[in-house]
Amino acid sequence: GWAAGLEEREGGWWPRFDRDVMVRSLAENARRSFWREWGQVACPTLLVLAQSSFIPAREAEEMLRQRPATMAMSIPGTGHDLHLEQPEILHTAVLDFLKGLCGAFSMVCW
């Protein structure tokens, strides 16, 4: 889980990444809107949200309003790191979504 990303150093446990590099790499997400890009997505989409997400409910609702064909789900008992907290549920959800696409388009899939 998340603790695997820590290392013991003088004074306690620290993230394995450089804080300044992480802050710079995430800065664009905090300053920029991605609504234009969201509107340009043309492929089938599965929106997976954590039960305790940092994405406000009104933003998720707007995503679905703008692209009503988007499939959405919330994974119970999860926060931002839902892929670490409930990997089996996420894996099953993505597989089911992809299998549904294969059936809907009569594609040959795994």
Score class of each variant (00 low, 15 high):
L49E: 02
R9Q: 15
L26E: 09
R9I: 08
V48L: 06
N29R: 14
R24E: 09
A4H: 12
E37H: 09
A30M: 14
A30C: 08
D18G: 03
M22D: 12
W38D: 03
N29P: 00
F34W: 14
T45I: 02
L49G: 02
V23K: 10
W35V: 04
E8Y: 07
R24N: 09
A42C: 05
R19P: 00
E37C: 02
P15F: 10
G5A: 12
A4P: 00
C43K: 05
R31D: 10
R16C: 11
R19G: 03
Q40D: 13
R24F: 04
M22T: 14
R32K: 14
E37A: 15
L26I: 08
A27Y: 12
A30F: 15
G5K: 05
L49S: 07
R36Y: 08
C43P: 00
G39S: 05
R31V: 02
P15L: 08
F17T: 10
S25D: 13
L47G: 00
P44D: 03
G11R: 06
N29L: 15
Q40N: 10
G11L: 04
V41C: 06
D20N: 14
G12V: 04
V41K: 02
S25R: 15
A4I: 06
A30S: 14
G39T: 04
A30E: 15
C43R: 08
E8W: 09
V21A: 14
R32M: 08
D18A: 14
W38H: 03
A27W: 13
S25H: 13
R36F: 06
Q40H: 11
R32A: 12
R9T: 09
P44R: 09
V48I: 14
R16H: 11
L46P: 00
G12F: 06
W35H: 05
L47V: 06
R16M: 09
D20I: 04
F17P: 00
G39N: 11
G39F: 03
R19S: 11
W14C: 04
E28P: 01
W35Q: 07
T45H: 01
R24V: 02
L6V: 06
R24S: 10
E28T: 13
D18W: 07
S25G: 05
L49F: 04
V48S: 01
T45K: 02
M22R: 15
P44W: 02
E8P: 00
W13S: 11
R36P: 00
S25T: 13
V48F: 02
C43I: 07
L46Y: 04
G39R: 07
E7K: 14
G12N: 03
S25V: 05
W14Y: 14
N29V: 10
L46I: 03
E7W: 05
W13P: 00
A4Q: 12
R9S: 07
S33K: 05
L26T: 14
G11H: 05
E28I: 11
G12M: 03
T45E: 01
E7N: 05
G11K: 06
D18C: 08
E7H: 10
R24W: 09
P44V: 01
E8A: 15
A42P: 00
E37G: 05
L26S: 12
W35G: 03
D20M: 09
V21H: 10
V48R: 01
R36N: 10
L46T: 01
Q40M: 13
W35L: 08
